[in-house]
């Protein structure tokens, strides 16, 4: 009984840290998206927006390496995509933290489950699934 009470306490602490982490992650990502958006609009605001047909071959920033090199040259679109990447990584970080908290509680079954979920996400991140 005592042990249970303690683990609830640890859970709550970790959840509080996680909540803050999520908010920081979202705010940071959105700031990056916003800055990228301003740069993008400065350059492209008078161009024609055409999204009537899906043309994946025209997507310039659809891989992490392309996004990073675009960010270095201050390309607005690349910076927006970088912000999107940060946003995608926010909930993933939450899973990583949960795995650590299960590790602290020595709940190895849930360490395994958490790692499996991470593996699924990392596998899709590896770019092998899109032909």
């Amino acid at each position: 009984m005592k042990k249970e009470a303690k683990s609830v306490f640890v859970d709550k602490d970790i959840q509080f840290i996680l909540g803050t982490l999520l908010r920081v992650g979202v705010v940071t990502a959105m700031t990056v998206v916003f800055v990228g958006g301003l740069i993008y609009l400065l350059v492209a605001s008078n161009k024609i927006a055409d999204y009537h047909v899906f043309k994946p071959e025209l997507a310039e920033y659809s891989s992490i390496s392309a996004i990073l090199s675009g960010v270095l040259s201050f390309n607005g679109k690349a910076i927006i995509q970088f912000g999107t990447l940060l946003l995608i990584f926010t909930p993933i970080t939450r899973v990583v933290f949960s795995v650590f908290s299960f590790l602290i509680e020595r709940d190895y079954m849930y360490v395994t489950i958490g790692l499996f979920v991470l593996a699924v996400i990392l596998f899709s991140l590896s770019n092998k699934l899109v032909g």
Partner: peptide, 24 residues
């Protein structure tokens, strides 16, 4: 969030996340 992140990664690689639409 976690579920959406998993599919977002696939969309990103495929060029379905266009910065001009995703930003606003």
């Amino acid at each position: 969030g976690v579920t959406a992140a998993a599919s977002a990664v696939v969309y990103l690689h495929r060029g379905q996340i266009d910065p001009g639409i995703a930003m606003p």
